[in-house]
Nucleic acid binder design. Sequence first.
RNA 1: GGGCCUGUAGCUCAGUUGGUUAGAGCAGUCCGCUCAUAACGGAUUGGUCGCAGGUUCAAGUCCUGCCGGGCCUACCA
Length: 573
Amino acid sequence: MARHLITSAIPYINGIKHLGNLIGSQLPADLFARYQRARGHEVMFLCATDEHGTPAELAAAKAGKPVDEYCREMHAIQSEIADGFRLSFDHFGRSSSPQNHRLTQHFAGRLAQAGLIEEVSEKQVYSNADGRFLPDRYIEGTCPNCGYDKARGDQCENCTIQLNPTDLINPRSAVSGSSDLEVRETKHLHLRQSAMKDKLDQWIDSQVDWPVLTTSIAKKWLHDGDGLQDRGITRDLDWGIPVKKGDQDWPGMEDKVFYVWFDAPIEYIACGGEWAEAHGKTDADWERWWRTDKGADDVRYTQFMGKDNVPFHTLSFPATIMGSGEPWKLVDYIKSFNYLNYDGGQFSTSQGRGVFMDQALEILPADYWRWWLLSHAPENSDSEFTWENFQASVNKDLADVLGNFVSRVTKFCRSKFGEEVPAGGDYGPQEQALIDDLTRRIRAYEAHMDAIEIRKAAGELRAIWVAGNEYLQSAEPWAKFKTDPDAAAAVVRLSLNLIRLYAVLSQPFIPDAAATLMTAMNTDDDSWPDDVEQALSALPAGHGFAVPDVLFRKITDEEREDWQTRFSGTRDG
RNA sequence: GGGCCUGUAGCUCAGUUGGUUAGAGCAGUCCGCUCAUAACGGAUUGGUCGCAGGUUCAAGUCCUGCCGGGCCUACCA
């Protein structure tokens, strides 16, 4: 039995995420976690909310709430929606947890001891009206290059030129609009990533089987220009993890907090501690996943994320772990995704464009979304959601191919033999051919799932569903029943077993439908079909079952058009 | 500006280290079946593989240039 540690990129606390965020990390991670559990492996699947940073403070202020209260509420909401999508986290933690406070401060202390932290004095823009330092992109002004009057302090969106806030003409706060700004001197800690450049480079080079998307982004950062740059890991904010050197104060760093991108990945580890606390476990119970000196040496760690998160996971976080000099578990495989676009443009949280997770669940059950998103996962390039494609795929794959198969088999059996697995007849060459075909296909399905080739796995699963229809068509139990009821009984017996098999194989993709099928088949035998012939005899003659309700209803043209209109504009406040 | 990814049938995509007549699903057309959510099965139409050169006995695959789409470029996270 292997041990799989799986983490999904942690979603930012600021609002409800859209379907592009979902397919970019949490959903594929859940698919992999469910699959590995189904194969009988031990899995620890962790996710959390990323709660610190300027956007969280501003969102809380806008909502008129203290930031900790705002985060607590948003965590509860995101957690509930994650449940709605059947994301099977072992724990859904919070980067603001006490565990993460301690661990982040611990890492900073270790890095300082190792000489990998440098104190740097820099100039930052301070807004007197807002009473806070502002990140570069929260300063607006006129672009000195093209004259665009809403250029941001880091870059002009109009002419794409790189800027410093001080380059802007008539700079103002993007928060309040105030032009009462001044440049202040402030001291920050930098992580000396440059000192670890060669070590990181060698580590990346040794990962030959990682997706090109992952390694190419890492290489770019390692070798672009002067090579990997040091990175500020502190900020002048109120909300965050106070800067400390382990449990000691850090002179000169009072009133500062760690930068979210320093503490967010550490939350992957801290989340293990939160899991232990929530389940009455000991430190040893989570450390056996995270400390190679305490049992994690046989753990396989896989991370899932969108491409925008790759630099932090391939460079900054490994630098933190390596630099600590302690035996924390490093990632073994990084699966990264491109973006999902929405009907000709981009999904956008800030503009409210596209379908958001809460809205999706309001109009259709999770399985519909899970199937479409996973079978169209943007693995090789950006992909696109259109309502036409969604309707066509869901109706054909889920309703016609899988759902209708279940209907025709269970209803035929009920009308001819009653609601129990019929006895009589023997399996012949046709059945053997089906078993051989399924065996080949299931082995291919496993190979794709092991390699996290999601679209290929979905295609193979669909082909496995199709094989059932092909078999029924050629076996013709409705014709056989008239001349040789025993022969028809054998076909139906096999087909009913096929339904249980489909439930087991499909569960990682469509867990609710799988559960419905298991209940209808009146079984809790969810063992993986290592031996297909044996798996198809799990339900013996005489075993009772129930005809389930329609497994997947079809999306009508009217609904599609309605949704197309409803989601064409921006999300209501 | 620089870097990376990408352009294959009407649509969504596969095409391993270059190797026969380029594949799948959907849509279309025809046929079959009637157990079923008017579902299922079989067959079939459809592509000068973005364009132009080059290397090679052989190029969708390698090289060069051009055209189109996308992403990243380090203080949003």
